[in-house]
């Protein structure tokens, strides 16, 4: 179980996260929705300790994490994989080398399956990141995280910048992850459609606070103006 307890984070005098709490079990998919810049990405980075929170606690499998303790964070990051919004492949290595980078050789056995999930062909793997399209890079970065078989996978806008077909592929991949690996997923996204299709829980963030938390059905029937705006496929202008 992944648990966030009252996470707060302030950059300068701007409060990005204000007492955000969240619970996720393995096998569940939690979508975090919100307008750009409300701290969704920061939330994910806080979980894996890339950005230490100001206050609040992160519990992973009944273990409290400590962002200052690098050794502990190494094991946290093994349990909890983060797929960045940008592919963040090491551009001095080929895709294949990127996938193998820092990986135990026995874990490569399922490479074929994961490549199928994201529909990435093996021939592409000998290329360098700069030589392939953004979509391919993004797929490769997902496979890199999948290969590590984490118990929880945190996706940061996995479908942003992808064509509608790739979006379907990504959604199917997330389903597969949950079904086959029984992992828990947190997906940060703007994509309400995918959220309603996949999510077991939807969380809506605004100004660093959770303003809605519930099932996809309740999300669409919510009275929350922002939630309604999301459901209508448009984002409200500033209040």
């Amino acid at each position: 179980m992944l648990e966030l307890k009252a996470i707060s984070k302030t950059f300068g005098n701007r409060a990005v996260l204000r007492s955000v709490s969240l619970t996720l079990n393995r096998g569940q998919i939690c979508f975090v929705l919100g307008r750009s810049g409300v701290g969704k990405s920061v939330l994910l980075k806080t979980i894996v300790g890339l950005i230490p929170q100001d206050s609040g606690e992160v519990w992973i499998q009944s273990e409290k994490t400590d962002p200052q303790n690098e050794e502990q964070m190494v094991s946290v990051r093994q349990k909890c994989g983060l797929v960045f919004q940008m592919p963040a492949l090491l551009d001095s290595l080929t895709l294949q080398e990127n996938l193998e980078f820092g990986l135990k050789p026995e874990k490569l056995a399922r490479l074929g399956k994961y490549l199928d999930w994201v529909q990435l062909s093996r021939e592409r793997l000998s290329r360098y990141p700069a030589e392939v399209s953004f979509g391919t890079q993004k797929k490769a970065s997902v496979v890199r995280t999948l290969l590590r078989e984490p118990q929880f996978i945190l996706f940061d806008e996995p479908t942003t910048g992808l064509d509608p077909v790739s979006r379907q592929v990504t959604n199917q991949m997330i389903r597969n992850v949950v079904k086959e690996s029984h992992s828990g997923c947190i997906v940060v996204s703007h994509d309400v459609q995918s959220a309603i299709e996949l999510a077991s829980t939807i969380i809506l963030l605004d100004q660093g606070q959770v303003i809605f938390q519930g099932t996809p059905e309740s999300f669409c029937s919510s009275e929350q103006p922002l939630a309604r705006a999301f459901c209508n496929g448009m984002v409200l202008l500033d209040h």
Binding site: K45, M73, V74, R77, F84, M86, L89, D91, G102
Partner: peptide, 16 residues
């Protein structure tokens, strides 16, 4: 560039 494209963060995630 590795820093601004989050490759450095990625290295941390990969425990490298």
């Amino acid at each position: 560039v590795m820093k601004i494209t989050e490759q450095l963060d990625q290295l941390k995630l990969l425990a490298v």
